[in-house]
Computed example of a mutant assay.
Amino acid sequence: MTPELRTERLVLTPYVPADEEDFVGLFQDAASGQWFWDGPERRPAAEDRALFGRIFSMIYAEDRFPVWAVRHEGRFIGHAEIKPSPESWLNGHEIVYGLTANSWGHGFGTELAAALTAYGHDALHLTEVHATVNAENARSLKVLKKIGFVHTKDVREDDGSTTQLLTHRTGSDSVRI
């Protein structure tokens, strides 16, 4: 069951059906959505709607892993999850997060990533929490390094891009929320 999480300024709650338009909007936005999978220009909105449906029909229904809507002052500003990595080269759990472009630059990314990492270590008892980030996503790389993630590997993708694997280990210096 996905628990509610709170930080100083953010509330992470399980999605509700009324969140669908905000979810699709985040994933389809050119600025924010470019960092999710293959980006909105190559992914029709119908795929994001289907993904939103699977959060309820599979992820929540089968209690697979926590997935949250991220809110600030009651307003939807992002998406977050911590899950077993689907990548064959990564045996562990990874955090996934994204914020609406209009919420960038306020420290929410740092606050959110720190909360997800702490949840992984404290609630899931993980000794390592991972993040996979496109090497061109300077904002996310900066956030993760700021809270104690260390670059551990580069992975060359089929499209020629590079994904960086970053790892946070129990006991690492980090921002705690």
Results as ranks from 00 to 15, higher is better:
T2M: 01
E4Y: 00
E4A: 06
R6G: 15
R6Y: 08
T7A: 06
E8I: 04
R9F: 12
L10A: 14
L10S: 12
L12W: 06
T13C: 06
T13Y: 00
V16F: 06
P17F: 12
A18M: 06
A18G: 08
A18D: 13
D19K: 01
D19Y: 07
E20Y: 00
E21Q: 13
F23I: 14
V24W: 11
G25Q: 03
L26C: 08
L26R: 02
F27P: 04
F27Y: 13
D29V: 12
D29A: 12
A30T: 09
A31S: 12
A31P: 03
S32P: 14
S32V: 05
G33Q: 04
W35F: 15
W35P: 14
W37V: 12
W37S: 15
W37G: 15
D38M: 05
D38T: 11
R42S: 13
R42G: 12
E47F: 04
D48I: 07
R54N: 06
I55Y: 02
F56S: 00
F56A: 07
F56R: 01
M58C: 09
Y60M: 02
Y60Q: 02
Y60F: 05
A61F: 06
A61R: 02
E62D: 12
E62I: 00
E62Y: 02
E62S: 10
E62P: 00
D63V: 13
R64F: 09
P66D: 10
V67T: 13
G74M: 06
G74I: 09
G74K: 03
I77W: 02
I77F: 07
H79Q: 11
A80V: 11
E81L: 08
P84I: 11
E87P: 02
S88Y: 07
W89F: 11
L90A: 11
E94F: 03
I95A: 08
Y97P: 14
L99G: 15
N102A: 14
G105Q: 06
H106D: 03
H106I: 08
L112E: 14
L112H: 04
L112Q: 09
A115C: 14
A118P: 02
Y119D: 00
A123E: 11
H125N: 15
E128M: 01
V129T: 11
H130R: 05
A131F: 04
T132G: 00
V133W: 02
N134C: 05
A135P: 01
N137P: 06
A138E: 10
R139C: 05
S140G: 11
L141F: 05
K142H: 13
G148N: 03
G148F: 01
F149E: 08
H151D: 10
K153L: 11
D154H: 05
V155P: 00
D158A: 15
D159M: 07
D159S: 10
T162S: 11
T162V: 15
Q164K: 06
L165K: 08
L166R: 01
L166A: 10
T167V: 15
H168F: 03
H168P: 04
H168D: 04
S172E: 08
D173H: 08
S174R: 12
S174A: 15
S174Q: 08
V175Q: 04
V175A: 05
V175P: 03
R176F: 10
I177N: 05
